[in-house]
């Protein structure tokens, strides 16, 4: 760090960006780490079944798995298109 650096002290460092990116990523990876390995396949097959009856897109369905000391919860969320 030299005299010149004092003139660009207002420049925001990249460390805060790094921290923010890491916090999001690590939280995501920790939550998906405990998920059963069949989850992506289950999601794919469920989507195929629903698409047979309703015209929904790829992201209309989300499957999430949560675990606490008492129980394991499989949450299935399907967004149906607006009826016109």
């Amino acid at each position: 760090m030299s005299l010149l650096d004092y003139f660009r002290i207002s420049k925001v460092g990249t460390a805060s960006v790094a921290k923010e990116r890491l916090q999001i990523l690590v939280a995501h990876e920790r939550s998906s780490k405990n998920q059963p390995s069949y989850l992506p396949q289950l999601q794919k097959e469920l989507l195929a079944v629903i698409q047979k009856y309703v015209n929904v897109g790829q992201d209309a369905i989300s499957v999430s798995f949560e675990q606490d000391e008492e129980q394991e919860t499989l949450e299935l969320n399907i967004v149906l298109p607006d009826q016109k």
């Binding site: 760090m1 650096d5 460092g13 990249t14 460390a15 805060s16 921290k19 890491l22 916090q23």
Partner: peptide, 18 residues
């Protein structure tokens, strides 16, 4: 430490927070 001070590097606290 000097790069941390400039906001160019994750600090000890940042890494411990994560």
């Amino acid at each position: 430490p000097d790069r941390v001070k400039l906001g160019e590097m994750l600090s000890v606290d940042d890494v411990q927070d994560i």
